[in-house]
């Protein structure tokens, strides 16, 4: 694992306990993606994330920069787990801050949607019956998965 990566980590992610120290920030949005116990009717025990780590890290950096050009953000960040992630653990966190809430909300949705659809990260689902399967991923554009 390349430890110079900024946005991809094998370390457990935790919720921020306080907002960034930015006096001009009036809205701070946190999106947290969590490993759930059922997917498409099958009982999941845990996930494993694989990634083209260096490329994924650069792409997340580029997506954050794109968000900063589209909205007037005072803060943006994204962290994504790699490796084994257990039920109820955090797989991804996107945080955005702006002067007013609208921009932080919009930018946050934009960032997580692009991270899920574009960044070379893949999840393998492990099921209670001992089987496992790579998630089919973003073939459709429904944004519901």
């Amino acid at each position: 694992m390349n430890h110079s990566l900024k946005f991809i980590t094998e370390d457990i992610l935790t919720l921020p306990t306080e907002s960034p120290d930015l006096p001009q920030m009036g809205g701070y949005v946190i999106f947290v993606g969590i490993v759930r116990n059922i997917n498409e009717g099958k009982s999941v025990t845990h996930l494993e994330y694989d990634a083209y780590a260096e490329m994924a890290d650069q792409m997340i950096s580029d997506i954050l920069k794109d968000a900063q050009t589209k909205w007037d953000l005072v803060f943006s960040d994204c962290k994504h787990r790699l490796g084994k992630v257990n039920l109820q653990e955090i797989a991804v966190i996107v945080t955005t801050g702006s002067v007013h809430r609208d921009e932080a909300y919009s930018a946050n949705r934009y960032i997580i949607d692009r991270v899920k659809h574009e960044v070379p990260i893949w999840k393998k689902e492990y099921y209670i019956d001992g089987s496992s399967e790579w998630s089919k991923g973003c073939i459709d554009e429904s944004h519901k998965h």
Binding site: E54, A56, G137
Partner: peptide, 25 residues
């Protein structure tokens, strides 16, 4: 590490990655 199109040319020494549909998040 740059996403390319089918018509793009491969250069000597390239690192070619095949990336299935993303499923992060």
């Amino acid at each position: 590490q740059i996403i390319v199109n089918d018509s793009d040319k491969i250069q000597d020494g390239a690192i070619i990655a095949i990336l299935p549909p993303s499923s992060g998040g």
